[in-house]
Simulated assay, not measured.
Amino acid sequence: MPNIMVGEVKPGSKILKDVITPLGGTLFTKGKVLLPRDLDILQAFLIQQVEIEGSEGEAKTSDPLKAASKPAPSKAGSIINESVLAKSNSPLHDEYDKMLALIKKSYFSVAAASLPIFELRSQLEILISHLKDYSILKFAPRTLNDQDYNYHNAVLSALTSYKIAQWCGYPQKDWMQAAFGGLLHDIGNVKVDASLLQKPASLNSAEIEEVRRHTTYGYQLLRNVTAINEGVRLAALQHHEKVDGSGYPLRLEGNQIHFYAKIVAVADIFHAMTLERAYRKAKSPYLVLEQLLTESFGKLDPVIVQTFIQKTTEFYNGTRIRLSDGRHAEIIFTDRNNPTRPMVQVEGKIVNLAQERELHIQEIIA
């Protein structure tokens, strides 16, 4: 069947060949039934022709408009499923709350007693058994308060570190240990003056040095803990090191930094920036992803960062969002070259956030 000019294509037409963007991304896959808005997307990407099912030897759909009204088979179905599963009455939230209470109790007791590592491991394994329901950009704890920030950061960093270790192709034996690295990376904060951790004003040089000691305190607290490997201890010590040697406490470079610490660094920064603090509002997860991408040039491991961004934004076509100007919109296409700035439909129009740089996604609604 010859290609048809996009201006002549009707809603309900079925695509016979993948539609590729000028930058090489797949816009629509073979077999998709085009909806009216899909025609706008084709034009927005300057696609001139598509190959569609027609009368010459191809079977037409018996009722094109009826076919167009049905959801096209796509990854959007998994989005709806994730949205349902992420609601606050899910088993994931139940186990998250148990993990939160346990890590909070552990923080209070670790300075005076041994860490309940086997209890922590048991609850972490239960929590991770619900990992399929955990969407990094969409999950929100049931309750948040300023005093519990460190504990939320610990549990979220554990879940995210586990997923990053999976996504990056590390051996399965490292996944749980990377999660432990996320869970315990800031445990040294128990030996830091709490007023410094909550201080809204800028810290002076002496206070900064004291806060930075949480890395060495953490390593010391974990040094004799069984059931974790040395990588977990090094994650506590090294998660603020940078690949260019500008981090702390030891100014390590590149391969001198344990890969658990590199994984935890990404998870920690993401959750630190997207959680609400007493002195700072939570940032848009999409803006934080962009910041991580910037940090990957000389600061963070670029492979880990790029994998994290690619995977967290992978299945979000169909997701409803709120833009930075307050308008509600829907993600309709994510270009792999600009994963944090997809095309969205807002008030009946298609907006390409890669071009409209003054706008960004503020919040994922569902």
Rank of each mutant, 00 (worst) to 15 (best):
N3Y: 10
N3M: 02
G7I: 02
V9L: 03
K10I: 14
P11I: 10
I15P: 00
L16T: 09
L16Q: 11
D18C: 01
I20H: 09
L23T: 15
G24I: 07
T29I: 07
G31L: 10
V33Q: 01
P36E: 11
I41Y: 13
I47F: 05
Q48F: 03
E51V: 04
I52W: 03
I52D: 08
E53Q: 11
G54Y: 04
S55M: 03
A59C: 11
A59S: 14
T61F: 15
K70T: 15
S74K: 00
S74I: 00
I80F: 13
I80S: 12
N81P: 01
S83D: 00
K87S: 03
S88L: 01
P91W: 06
D97C: 11
L100A: 05
L102S: 06
K104P: 00
F108L: 09
V110G: 00
L115K: 05
P116Y: 07
E125H: 09
I126Y: 05
S129P: 05
K132Q: 03
I136Q: 08
K138C: 06
A140H: 12
A140R: 15
P141T: 02
R142W: 05
R142F: 03
T143H: 10
T143R: 10
N145G: 06
A154D: 03
V155T: 05
L159Y: 02
T160S: 14
A165V: 06
Q166N: 09
Q166T: 08
W167K: 00
C168H: 09
G169R: 07
Y170W: 12
Q172C: 10
W175R: 09
Q177M: 14
A178F: 01
A179M: 09
F180L: 02
L183E: 03
D186V: 04
I187A: 00
N189H: 08
K191Q: 15
V192E: 14
D193H: 12
A194N: 13
S195H: 13
L197C: 11
A201M: 14
H214C: 07
T215G: 01
G218F: 00
Y219P: 05
L222Q: 06
R223N: 05
N224D: 15
N224Q: 14
V225R: 10
A227D: 11
A227T: 01
I228T: 08
H240R: 09
E241F: 08
E241W: 02
E241N: 09
K242C: 13
S246N: 04
G247E: 13
G247S: 13
L250C: 08
R251D: 12
L252P: 05
G254Q: 08
H258M: 02
I269R: 12
M273S: 11
Y279T: 12
R280I: 12
K281R: 07
K281G: 10
K283N: 02
K283S: 01
Y286V: 04
V288G: 06
L289T: 07
L293F: 08
T294A: 14
F297G: 04
L300Q: 13
V303F: 11
V305N: 02
Q306M: 14
T307H: 06
I309H: 08
K311N: 13
T313V: 10
E314Y: 07
F315L: 12
N317D: 12
N317W: 03
D325C: 07
G326F: 09
I331L: 04
I332H: 01
T340I: 09
P342D: 08
M343Q: 00
Q345E: 00
G348V: 12
K349C: 09
N352F: 10
L353T: 05
L353Q: 04
R357Q: 02
E363W: 01
I364H: 02
A366D: 12
